[in-house]
Amino acid sequence: MNELRAARSLTTLPVVTLGGDVVAEVKDTVFDTAAARVTGFTLSGRGLLSGSLKQSLPWTAVHSLGHDAVMIVDVGDLADTPVAVARRAAQQGRVLHARVLTEEGAEVGTVLDVVVEGGTSGRVVGFRIAAGRALARGSGRRRHRVYVPRGETLVVSGRTLVIPGDAIHYVADDLPAFAARVGAFHDGHEGQEGTRP
């Protein structure tokens, strides 16, 4: 599996062509309405004083999302998007601060960040959440932040996400541990489907 990245950590990642030229940096990551995939990035210019770019980067033009750069084939792959359109898309694809519930109706917490898979898939694999009471273990004084897998049966309605009930058994405290849990979570689900009559 490719490296997992928190979407917020992608901001300021350089966008580099295969020819080795830097053309922009990532401003925001945009998701589809089901929070299943990255649909693209809004961009800003390089450096402190350069603001938002009119162009955006659709995911279809991404060659690979890596640890140190978003690679594209050619600068011509950037799409001309009026800033307002990009902003609306970013709003629709916004899952930050959405409530997370399990299928059983337990409130798990609110979304702090979205975990995406690096490479070419653009898949959303989970969320970093501020854990609610259902998940917070031990002393409740410290606000608990955990990673939960997305699951395939996720339902999105308005500002609420519903995840499979057993997803909360695969929570992790940090990204490396989460990568292992996500693998186990998917294996577990495939196993269940196999034993269904």
Binding site: P14, V16, T17, L18, G19, G20, D21, V22, A69, M71
Partner: peptide
């Protein structure tokens, strides 16, 4: 080697 630009060797 794939490309060499102002930012990196790819």
């Amino acid at each position: 080697l794939l490309g060499l630009g102002d930012y990196a060797l790819v």
